[in-house]
Structures are given as C-alpha cells and as structure tokens.
Nucleic acid binder design. Structure first.
Lengths: 144, 144
DNA sequence: GTATGTGCAAATCATTTGCATTCTC
DNA sequence: GAGAATGCAAATGATTTGCACATAC
C-alpha cells in the first residue's frame, strides 16, 4: 500500500502542479494522528513543532487533499469544518449530540453497498460518504 | 397531523419563550417551499415579499427550529449551512458532486434501523440523520 | 525561465453581539 | 411590568485574496 505522501506526489504530478516541503510537512502532520482535525488546530500543532507554515497554505492545500481522496469533510461544527482521513484508516460514522456536541464513532458496513448501488444508478464515481446520526446523549436528553 | 406553526407554538410555550409575528412569518416562508434553504436565500425571499425581517432574527430562530425538530442541517456548502424540513416531508439523503456541487436526492429506508440500533446501544434520543454520498457526477468524472 | 507556491496583511463573508426600542405574556 | 425579541450597526472569526518574493520543475 502506498503512503499518503506517495499518493499526493502522484496526484500533484498528474495535475501538473508542484510539490513543496510545506505541503509535505502539512500532510505528514495530518497523518501523524488518527483524529479528526480542523485548520486552526492543525496550524497550532505545526506551530508547536516549530514548523513555519501559514494558514493560507493549509487552506490552499485542502482542496487538493479532498480531490486526491486523502481526506474528507467530517462535519461542520463550531463555525468551521472538521476533516478526517479516508486513506489508510478505517472509515467511520458519527453519532452526535445536538446539545453538547459529544461525538461517538461507529461503523456501518452496509453503507458501502448503498454507495455501489448509487454509483451504478446515477453513473457517479463515488469517493465516499458522510453519515451522521443526530440526537441527544444520555446526559442531555434528560434536560430538554 | 399538526401544522408546523402549531408544533412551533407548542415548543415555544413549553420553553417559556415568546412567539412573535416575525417568527411565524419566517416559519411560514420556510414551509411554503419544499426545497432546501439557507439563511441568505430565505432572507431575500422574505424581502422580495416585502416582509421586513432582519437576518439576525433568522439566525436567532434557527436553533429553536432545530431543537423543535422542524428543520435539520442538510449540508455545508459555499461557505454556509443549508437546511431542510424534517417535519411533514419525506426524509431524503443526498448524493453530491465534489466538483460541480450537483445534488441528487434519494431515499434509504434502512438508515432508520441503524438509528434505532444506535439509540439503544448508546442510550441516545435520536432525532434524525444526515447521509451524504460524495463523488463525481457523470460530467465531472470525465475531466478529473 | 516561467509559472506556481509561500507568507503577510488586508479584504470578504457568514454569523454573532451590544444596545436601544418594541412587544409578548 | 418584566423579560424576550427585534433591528440596526458594529464586532467576530473563518476563509480568501492581492501582492511581492521565493522556489520547483
């Protein structure tokens, strides 16, 4: 299995773009952790490791990471998007509390079949899915 | 079946809040169409009908509409959230093109079962779900 | 060498907030 | 009459853009 960086280099070459140390640093940092991330948090992580990467460089890289299939939007919360890897890590879905924001991850293998069915029916090249179940967690459902 | 306004009035009363003509106007406009909506577009729709409703009033109402179960976030796109009704209309999921933004709606009844299973397993009060399948539409997949 | 990428500072756009006024209960 | 809600204008915060400089191919 190719590494994320290899996938990215290939993608960049195919698009006729250029790779840079900044981009490799960002990708390395994203894949160093298995967690979700958002731009600001990623920026601070890089900063704390003394890597001088600007936020615009992160923002400018994200569309390419999405297009290359390395990451995917996970959910929108607290006024900004959160992303997750979809290469090399088990895909998962989210159960989210509408009150406190608590997130529980779970797997649902059946959705892969739904993807395939849709791909065929609508002639889409399906790259993944986002499945969120929304409700109130045990603590919060007591108060509403 | 109760109307949306009735549901909302009941919700407001239960919460000890106050209903206003502005709120009723907004809700009426939201449910006058079966489409998704976003704040700006809703604001313009109201404006074009000579209803003087300010954007902050819409923004301040949305959390209550979400909490009362009348609407739900549909997807985040073009820098802002889009909402959809979940009361009185058939729930649907979205197949979205990552390149051009084209959206196809589809139904997937099995997800209701997933909801029930999760509600039991994690002791959540489940209110709904959001299922998006992402990929490239027939036109766009040719170019990438 | 050329076009792309970078960092910075400034601009943009969605959303939120402070506040004086108005309205609901 | 007290507490909520409204509209406005200003503030906030995420994201984008313009631009001069650096660098990958």
């Amino acid at each position: 299995m190719k590494s994320e960086i290899e996938i990215f280099r290939e993608f960049i070459r195919k698009k006729g773009l250029r790779n840079t140390p900044e981009r490799e640093t960002i990708i390395e940092e994203i894949f160093a952790s298995h967690d979700h991330f958002d731009v600001d948090e990623l920026y601070l992580r890089l900063k704390s490791k003394k890597k001088k990467i600007s936020k615009p460089s992160i923002y400018r890289l994200i569309p390419y990471l999405l297009e290359s299939g390395l990451i995917q939007e996970a959910y929108f919360e607290d006024g900004h998007l959160h992303y997750e890897h979809i290469y090399g890590h088990e895909h998962h879905c989210h159960l989210r509390c509408l009150n406190c924001g608590k997130i529980i991850e779970f797997e649902e293998k059946y959705l892969k079949k739904v993807e395939n069915r849709l791909a065929e029916k609508y002639d889409f090249l399906v790259k993944g899915h986002k499945f969120e179940v929304l409700g109130y967690c045990p603590k919060c459902k007591a108060h509403i």
